[in-house]
Simulated scan of single mutants.
Amino acid sequence: MRRDLRRYAAGRGGGTRRERPLCQGRAGKIANFTGISSAYEAPERPDIRIDTLRESPEAAAERIVGHIMGVWSPDL
């Protein structure tokens, strides 16, 4: 089945909608593609830091949502 899906994707331009820009970046078709043709620049002062080695995905998601909800307001 996986082989059939790959053949189908290849016939339709390859990859999912999300993968296509990555493939184009790797092929040099997109200039300044972060992580490929342009270096990743970490933010100087991030609003939140998630240590994925010490925190479970569930705990990290709860912290992210809590942070967003603390900043975001429906009145904005």
Rank of each mutant, 00 (worst) to 15 (best):
I48D: 02
E55C: 08
S73L: 08
A10P: 02
R26Q: 12
S38I: 02
A27K: 09
S73D: 14
A61I: 04
A31N: 09
R26H: 10
Q24W: 10
G66W: 00
I30E: 03
L5K: 11
I30L: 15
P21F: 00
T16I: 11
S73Q: 13
L5W: 08
R3I: 11
G15D: 01
G28V: 06
R6M: 13
G14Y: 07
Y40V: 14
F33P: 00
Q24R: 15
R17N: 09
I48M: 07
S73Y: 04
F33M: 01
A39S: 12
Y40N: 13
I36W: 02
D75M: 09
L22D: 04
G25E: 01
A10G: 04
N32W: 03
G11V: 08
E62G: 09
R20D: 00
R17F: 07
R12L: 13
W72D: 11
E41P: 02
G15W: 01
S37E: 07
V65A: 15
G13C: 04
R3L: 11
R2Q: 11
Y40D: 12
P46V: 03
R17C: 07
G15H: 01
N32C: 06
E19P: 00
D75S: 13
N32T: 03
I36N: 02
G35W: 05
G14I: 08
G28I: 02
D4H: 10
Y8N: 10
G70W: 00
R2F: 12
R6H: 10
Y8I: 12
R45H: 14
I68P: 06
G28Y: 05
G13A: 06
R54W: 00
P57L: 08
G35H: 05
P74Y: 04
P57W: 03
N32I: 03
G28P: 05
R26Y: 08
P74V: 07
R6E: 14
E62I: 09
I36R: 01
G66Y: 02
A27E: 13
S56A: 11
A39N: 11
L53K: 10
G28C: 05
R49D: 06
A9S: 09
L53C: 09
G70H: 03
I30C: 06
E55R: 03
A31T: 13
V65S: 11
G13D: 02
P46Q: 03
